[in-house]
Design a protein around this nucleic acid. Structure first.
Length: 567
RNA sequence: GGGCCGGUAGCUCAGUGGUAGAGCACCUGACUUUUAAUCAGAGGGUCGUGGGUUCGACUCCCACCCGGCUCACCA
């Protein structure tokens, strides 16, 4: 088995199937030159971005002399299926030889496995014929005249009970010799309990629906390599079927969030992913380019400024569940693209938003886990009670003895830090130093759902000042297990203050802070038309799902997390 | 980017300078109630890549590639 011939060129990969050479390859593999044609026919796979079979990639990526030599040379295909794949390929050809289509166009199943099991007793008693379909999972246990296996269809699994006397020699031997674990089959039969009492389908006939070429991972250890699990998520989902529950929980998290917001009159909207000016967060963006417009565009880092324009426009409340993109590090709680829900409510402030968060997360916890006590990595999180609301200054005072509400000079702060023997990196400005102390001494301790409120104004260029304490803002962040899950504030609606904040950010940017906020003149213009007092909120969906599904890393709750590209 | 750990059969992993190993998977045979079926047998490897030391390298040295964890920045 293999590809007939191929050529790699600077423009891409061109590949075609050549029958004569394939016959040679078949012979080399012991199939005989007269064996039927091969199963993979790659025709004109063009461009490096085209989806390519993995064995082709292995072939293409094998070590060569140099890129120039690779481009210049005409390669004969030497990549072969590995033994296990070749064996399955041979079985596929045997099925074809027997006149069976290994990839028929349709299934004629009558029940999902879950439906059959739900009605098992009645269907078994009546000996009703039914047809089930699914993937063969786990070991096939084939004895001389009887065989057992399990199939799984996404709704549930059931045991196949195959008697040689019942299905006949030909079908029994075909099951034994030509079908494999992971093949997708359809079985007709009746429901029946085995002697061991397991609910099974006593098979009358069996039909292949899809022949599998790739073998399953090892039976016990399974697919345990973390990288392979993420790269081949499809395989992870097959083998570790409980993993599907994580993504069902993710879907339920989002749908519950929607229903909470919808019920409160928020309107779901969509705003641009491609933005000429990025904003709404402190982060480095991804940059792209529009050819016709001749314009740089940025992938959004947040939806905030567009959503608030819509509050100016008269919506009483809006929300968007968006993919955001931040060109920054990748770790246990960061993926370059991530999902955030942002919502804005007119005539509300950050206290109202805290109430909303408590209600929303309680409902989500109930919907996803069935309760408000949620286990996470050996700890128990309580979503059933009001969250503590602690000011940042108070939290820092409690953990370090330093009162940032009384210290506004960076030098004095540094002196206090030395006196208190704080082991944190020294920062150049008071606000960044406060943030650093908080991150180091407070944040890791915030295990239970907690609101930290009233952030320094320099760290919050879009939040309204506290009237009685103008150096701080009406802002809160929601923390769970030491992770920031949410960020919210009473939105700044004074256009002149907003303009000045942007100007201050520009100074930071000029001073080398490449995460500083951009000037968005149109946003200031919108505020000049008047925005009502507004409470806004952002919630990191991925992190929330991590917490609710007890997962240690963000990659476990993202179906296709970003992975470094393999050369 | 820094630090630590790793890359050996399809999978999970042993192997401290002297012929490349195990379990599982797969293949062949036996077997009419299995649940990781069992029993017997066979096949399967450029030991991540390149260079060096050596009579001899999976093993020691150097460089590189790839991955994981971790630190720093960010949600």
């Amino acid at each position: 088995m293999g590809f007939g011939g191929g050529e790699a060129s600077p423009e891409g990969i061109f590949f075609s199937y050549v029958g004569g050479e394939a016959a040679d390859i078949r012979e080399k593999l012991g199939f005989g030159a007269s064996a039927p044609s091969v199963g993979f026919r790659a025709t004109a796979l063009e461009g490096r971005n085209a989806p390519l079979p993995s064995m082709f990639l292995q072939w293409y990526n094998r070590p060569t002399e140099s890129p120039a030599a690779r481009n210049a040379a005409q390669y004969r295909v030497t990549m072969e299926l590995n033994d296990l794949q070749a064996q399955r390929q041979a079985k596929l050809e045997r099925l074809r030889d027997a006149g069976l289509n290994p990839y028929p166009t349709r299934s004629s199943r009558t029940h999902s496995i879950a439906a059959a099991l739900a009605d098992f007793d009645a269907l078994a008693t009546s000996e009703s014929s039914l047809t089930l379909a699914g993937r063969i999972v786990g070991a096939r246990r084939v004895m001389g005249k009887i065989a057992f296996a399990h199939i799984e269809d996404g709704s549930a699994g059931i045991q196949l009970w195959i008697s040689r006397a019942e299905v006949g020699d030909e079908a029994f031997l075909r099951f034994r010799d030509d079908l494999d674990t992971f093949d997708i089959v359809e079985v007709a039969g009746v429901l029946r309990l085995t002697q061991k009492g397991e609910r099974s389908i006593f098979v009358r006939s069996i039909t292949i629906l899809a022949k599998t070429i790739n073998p399953p991972p090892e039976k016990w250890a399974g697919l345990s390599d973390v990288e392979e699990r993420h790269r081949q998520r499809y395989l992870d989902l097959i083998v570790n079927s409980e993993r599907r529950d994580i993504f069902r929980a993710r879907a339920r998290t989002i749908s519950t969030m929607r229903s909470v917001l919808d019920a409160r009159g928020f309107v779901e909207v969509e705003t641009p992913v491609l933005q000429p000016i990025y904003g709404g967060a402190a982060a480095r963006p991804f940059t792209t380019y529009h050819n016709q417009l001749g314009q740089n565009l940025y992938l959004r880092i947040a939806t905030e400024l567009y959503l608030k324009r819509l509050i100016v426009g008269g919506f009483p409340g809006v929300y968007e569940i968006s993919k955001n993109f931040r060109n920054e590090g990748v770790d246990r709680s960061h993926n370059p693209e991530f999902t955030m829900m942002e919502c804005y409510q007119a005539f509300a402030d950050y206290r109202d938003v805290m109430d909303l968060v408590e209600v929303m997360l309680r409902e989500i916890a109930l919907a996803v886990t069935g309760g408000t006590l949620v286990p996470y990595q050996g700890q128990q999180l309580d979503f059933g009670r009001p969250w503590p609301r602690i000011s940042m200054a108070q939290a820092i005072l409690e953990q370090t003895g330093i009162d940032i509400a009384q210290i506004h000079e960076i030098d004095v702060l540094h002196a206090a830090m030395n006196a208190a023997n704080l082991k944190v990196e020294r920062k150049g400005t008071w606000a960044k130093q406060v943030d650093e102390i908080f991150s180091e001494y407070v944040q890791p301790l915030l295990i239970q759902p907690t609101f930290i409120i009233d952030y320094p104004v320099e760290l919050s260029p879009l939040a309204k000042r506290k009237p009685e304490q103008p150096a701080f803002t009406e802002r809160f962040e929601a923390f769970i297990v030491g992770m920031e899950i949410g960020n919210a504030f009473s939105e700044l609606n004074d256009p002149f203050d907003q303009e000045q904040r942007f100007l201050d950010q520009l100074k930071d940017f000029a001073a080398g802070d490449d995460e500083a906020h951009q000037m968005d003149a149109d946003y200031v213009n919108a505020l000049m038309y008047g925005m009502p007092p507004t409470g806004g909120l952002g919630i990191g969906i991925d992190r929330l799902v991590m917490v609710l599904t007890d997962q240690p890393t963000i990659r476990e709750v993202i179906l296709f997390p970003h992975m470094r590209q393999r050369d």
